[in-house]
Write a protein that binds this DNA or RNA. Sequence first.
DNA 1: ATGGTAGTAGAACTA
Length: 256
Amino acid sequence: MKIASWNVNSLKVRLPQLTQWMAEAQPDIVALQETKLEDAKFPVDELAAAGYRAVFSGQKTYNGVAILTRGQAPTDVVTDIPGLDDPQRRILAATVGDLRVVDLYVVNGKAVGDPKYDYKLDWLAKVREFLAREHERHPNLVVLGDFNIAPDDRDVHDPVAWRDSVLCSVPERAALNAITGLGLHDSFRLFEQDAGHHSWWDYRQAAFRRNLGLRIDLILLGEALKGAARAAAIDRVPRQWERPSDHTPVTLDLDI
DNA sequence: ATGGTAGTAGAACTA
């Protein structure tokens, strides 16, 4: 089975690209971020026509997450972190067959020291507690999404320029390490050790053409699933299309 | 150099 994550930066704008990409890539599960759609406006019928069921947690203008599945319908859906009263729609957990899937749109944080940065670190700490409980209950855990953190310097086009800035700072990386420390493995690094592989490129300064990007979109696998991983990839093709998202899809092939 | 581009909205905020 193939699992994917894609920050589409407006599902309304990117729906044609999403359905085209799914028709070509044939993923079984797709986690979306930044849908920017109220639930009443989610394109349920269009995605059903493409062969996918959907669960979603959205809001107008900002944020919004969704999980699309082929075959079995997602069940046991959770849309909020227990103990965190947060109107921002950034987390969606669901059971899909034998897998527990948690889709995250991690807070960007704006800049180190900004109030949004403090919210990011607090949000990540609360997510870690939630994921610890999810992992205990569901060994076959997949946590994926836009983490808005580059795990280490290999994931950054210019580590010196980005040193200690938001998306790369030591406290953010510590928060991510606290999550991977639960036994959740960055699946891309099970297969690829080199630098220069990115999943997000700023719209400005021709960043994609120059490969000035970061790898911030991750698929984490629980210990029990690690041995089932067969291949991980970043599909740069949709980033080359007309009117692209600033993120491109990341994928994982699992032998289950 | 706090620029630049994109999405949502219809000005300013978020990324």
